[in-house]
């Protein structure tokens, strides 16, 4: 993965964790005190947070540098046509 950004997010007190976040989010790292509960409860049924993960999963592959063999294959096909 080329574009993996590591953002350290320090939650209050003992819940200190480091999260790796996919960069496809252009959003700045979450504010430490952000009330994440709210978004989660609001969107729980219709638009749970993981739905953007599907996009991330897809986009993370789309954004990977293309292995050269694909271009080679197409060039070869082009020449033999």
């Amino acid at each position: 993965m080329v574009c993996v950004m590591i953002s350290a997010s320090f939650l209050s007190g003992n819940r200190q964790k480091v999260f790796e976040v996919l960069t496809s989010s252009k959003k700045p790292p979450r504010p430490a005190e952000a009330p994440r509960k709210k978004g989660r409860e609001q969107g729980s049924e219709r638009n749970p947070e993981w739905t953007q993960g599907l996009r991330q999963l897809y986009n993370s592959v789309v954004e990977e540098p293309l292995p050269g063999n694909f271009k080679d294959l197409l060039d070869k096909l082009d020449k033999t046509a």
């Binding site: 993965m1 997010s9 999260f19 996919l22 993960g53 599907l54 999963l57």
Partner: peptide, 18 residues
């Protein structure tokens, strides 16, 4: 990779979980 880190849940959701 961590996908979401829901409050009130011990383990965050990883992209791998998805």
């Amino acid at each position: 990779r961590v996908l979401t880190a829901p409050a009130g849940q011990e383990e965050p959701i990883h992209l791998s979980d998805m």
